[in-house]
């Protein structure tokens, strides 16, 4: 069982320039890997692995606010995590850019996200 970290926690992930425009990179927070995408429409954060066969989503191709998994081309909406072909959704995390161009992620702790 993951440990509950109940209070809302902000993480500063450093400058957005670490992620080339249009690409994604992973960040590890506690036991959770999170993919952060630097798109032309803004920054987005989702779970790192594709729910299909663990494809690395950060290595996928981004189009607008969608990402295509590099393994078998499942597609997801980065804003909501919704799948575009009718399978499992991605966990998304609130993320924003500060005025100085830093990525700020809100992470509620591992357990709190998985209500099921």
């Amino acid at each position: 069982m993951p440990i509950m970290t109940p209070e809302k926690t902000q993480y500063s992930l450093g400058s957005v320039a670490q992620i080339p425009l249009g690409e994604g990179r992973n960040f590890q927070i506690g036991g959770t890997e999170i993919a952060v995408f630097h798109t032309r429409q803004g920054v987005f954060a989702t779970q790192a692995e594709c729910p299909h066969r663990h494809g690395p989503l950060a290595d996928g191709l981004v189009g607008g606010t969608q990402v295509t998994c590099p393994f078998h081309a499942w597609k997801f909406d980065l804003t909501t995590g919704e799948p575009l072909m009718g399978q499992c959704a991605l966990q998304t995390y609130p993320v924003r850019l500060t005025d100085s161009g830093d990525i700020e992620l809100t992470f509620l702790g591992e357990a709190a996200h998985f209500v099921s």
């Binding site: 992930l13 450093g14 670490q18 080339p20 590890q28």
Partner: peptide, 15 residues
């Protein structure tokens, strides 16, 4: 050619 071209997971600098 790009920042962190060969790095999958970047370090979290500050919690």
């Amino acid at each position: 050619a790009t920042a962190n071209q060969f790095i999958s997971t970047l370090p979290v600098l500050q919690a």
